[in-house]
């Protein structure tokens, strides 16, 4: 498992547009600018190590990315993936729904991975496909849907 310090160092080295907002022994939060196509979005990344013997919040299972601005635009009339593509819907405010960037059942991400080399570029992939989806109503980035998830934690 990568330490939080290792994650922080890798983020600082690879993503200069991100600021570390909070660092603890077992968790960290970043805010930063990320481009998918050209427009820069501001996103947040929450991450923590799982706490043994507890019912862990989702951000302790894998890094959680949210788009802060410009606000995501739900499209209920989109041809595919309405009203937002590949997110864990947050029914309190769906524009802040965390992005679903990998298939947890396919072992595509583990705590041994660096967020800087996986989560952040995958979020850039998501933003690029999201703009394509906004412009065409179709999601071209592939993916699949799993079992229903409930409101975010």
């Amino acid at each position: 498992m990568k330490t939080i310090a290792e994650q922080v160092r890798a983020m600082r080295r690879r993503w200069r547009t991100f600021d570390l907002a909070e660092q603890k022994d077992d968790s960290a939060v970043w805010f930063g600018g990320l481009v998918g196509i050209e427009r820069q979005y501001r996103v947040s990344v929450e991450y923590g190590h799982p706490a043994p013997g507890r019912d862990n919040a989702r951000w302790r299972l894998f890094p959680l990315v949210r788009v802060l601005s410009p606000q995501l635009e739900p499209r209920f009339d989109a041809l595919e993936e309405a009203p937002l593509p590949h997110v864990y819907f947050d029914y309190k405010d769906i524009t802040l729904s965390p992005l679903c960037l990998f298939d947890p059942n396919a072992n595509e991400w583990s705590h041994d991975d660096l967020i800087a080399e996986t989560t952040i570029p995958w979020a850039a992939d998501w933003l690029a496909c999201y703009e394509g989806w906004l412009a065409t109503g179709r999601w071209h980035g592939g993916g699949r849907h799993g079992q229903p998830h409930h409101a975010s934690q």
């Binding site: 998918g36 196509i37 050209e38 850039a124 496909c129 394509g132 179709r138 071209h140 592939g142």
Partner: peptide
């Protein structure tokens, strides 16, 4: 625009893309 979005999405779906330091795909 449809073709641009499809080409970009296909590159993401197949992993045949690079990510610039800004995040640009």
């Amino acid at each position: 625009v449809n073709d641009y979005a499809a080409t970009l999405g296909q590159a993401v779906a197949t992993g045949s893309r690079k990510i610039a330091p800004s995040g640009k795909v």
